[in-house]
Write a protein that binds this DNA or RNA. Structure first.
Lengths: 237, 237
DNA sequence: CGTAATCTTGAGTCCAATCAACCAATGTGG
DNA sequence: CCACATTGGTTGATTGGACTCAAGATTACG
């Protein structure tokens, strides 16, 4: 179903029934990608745009010595760069965190879509700009906040994003990340992530067991994190 | 002159004489912005796209307690987000570092430009995607590298970017940044930036005096930084 | 059910922050 | 034209947050 994408985009623009049909049609050809696989590898020249329908992915870059920085998470409804084919080669990789269902959209289909529907064109642009805004906020996170506030901020963002696509029923949702992956996201070691989570648990802020994250009081966590959702550019502004 | 923009874009796409004319025309109405001013402030609803013709600008976000993270530098030829008007409000600010000359491009002109010239459309897209790629690399920098390698990496990037728009004649170029601003860029304190620069100076890597940066051996600095220019997606790939 | 991956905790170390002067350069007004 | 103020740069001493190393507990999974 293109429903995940439609649901996400309709948070920004009013989509017509025709637009919905277009999106559904776009997602006709899907395939499965098992956890641990790479969807795209640095150096590739992708000619398709991928849409994540189920599961989680993540963008990352590797340094020569093996260190890894995760630069984005992809959750259902997320596209990997609509215009990626403009660049000659990928400058980063996209990995899959848990068994995923993916639609491959030929670039021609994307171009056609954007030409035919001004609403979708704008909506896809909006999604792209929000991705960039998230990247800026992650840079703020890594550059300015200490471990405790970094984790808090990331969890707030995840909560909002999961809510948005209907994957967080209530205060609890699935986060298929190891502590090592959390560390590589925020520039922390897994050991320090562990200690930070322990602290947040002991303060009654969260429960994180078996990849299930529960935020006991989102408002309070947002306050701690200094979380301002404006950068996600949600519907109601 | 739109020449700065044209020079930058022609590093990616072959622009026709007509395209050059279009760009020149676009930059007809210019104005000056003094150092220290904000070009755009968080919360604004810009209806113009700004093109920096002379001087330096920087994107930044402030936290409640006054800390600042610089998330990008704008040098001559850089546009501030072509499609910014799709978002309702700015989620960050753009400041001016040294007296600048700026062209304000009405969004209609941008849209028209992109419709009329496929080459320019692609080129502007390319510029946008490169901006995002730089952001990813900055996140890697802040998340994974220590102060010494962070500074080295940033200087390598600046060198390449300045070279690209013809603002670095040889190994030396103008960098109108205080050590505090360098710190806010990389998530370091000014004191530590100072010590790091001192070390790089003592190792004979750089000279930095009066806002003039000279990199004595770019190849060596790139090696130290682990700098791979692929993310800048230059012409020759 | 056993092995590997992940999580957890402790002890010691180190990189970068903080605190605090002092110096150099620039600029302004009397 | 000089006194003084301000900003930016430099250096030292100390502190602290996060890393490293290491070992044990728990969980996941073939």
């Amino acid at each position: 179903m293109g429903n995940v994408l439609a649901r996400k985009l309709s948070g920004f623009a009013e989509l017509s029934a025709e637009d919905h049909a277009r999106l559904d049609q776009l997602c006709a050809r899907t395939f499965e990608v098992p956890a641990g696989d790479n969807l795209i590898t640095e150096g590739d020249r992708p000619s398709n745009v991928f849409l994540l329908l189920e599961g989680w992915g993540y963008r990352y870059k590797l340094l020569e010595d093996g260190r890894r920085q995760i630069v984005a998470f992809l959750i259902p409804g997320d596209l990997c760069d609509i215009h990626i084919f403009i660049l000659k080669r990928m400058d980063h990789s996209i990995g899959i965190l848990c068994d995923a269902k993916v639609a491959a959209l030929p670039k021609e289909a994307i171009i056609e879509l954007m030409e035919q529907s001004p609403a979708l064109n704008r909506a896809l642009w909006w999604a792209t700009l929000v991705d960039e805004a998230v990247l800026r906020e992650w840079l703020v996170n890594a550059g300015q906040r200490d471990a405790y506030h970094r984790v808090a901020h990331l969890f707030c963002e995840m909560s909002v994003r999961m809510q948005r696509v209907g994957l967080a029923g209530g205060p609890s949702f699935h986060v298929p990340l190891t502590q090592e992956e959390l560390g590589d996201t925020m520039g922390l070691t897994p050991v320090h992530v562990n200690r930070t989570l322990k602290r947040m648990r002991s303060e009654g802020l969260i429960t994180l067991r078996g990849k299930q994250l529960e935020i006991h009081d989102v408002g309070r966590l947002m306050e701690i994190a200094g979380f301002n959702p404006n950068y996600l550019h949600l519907a109601g502004e």
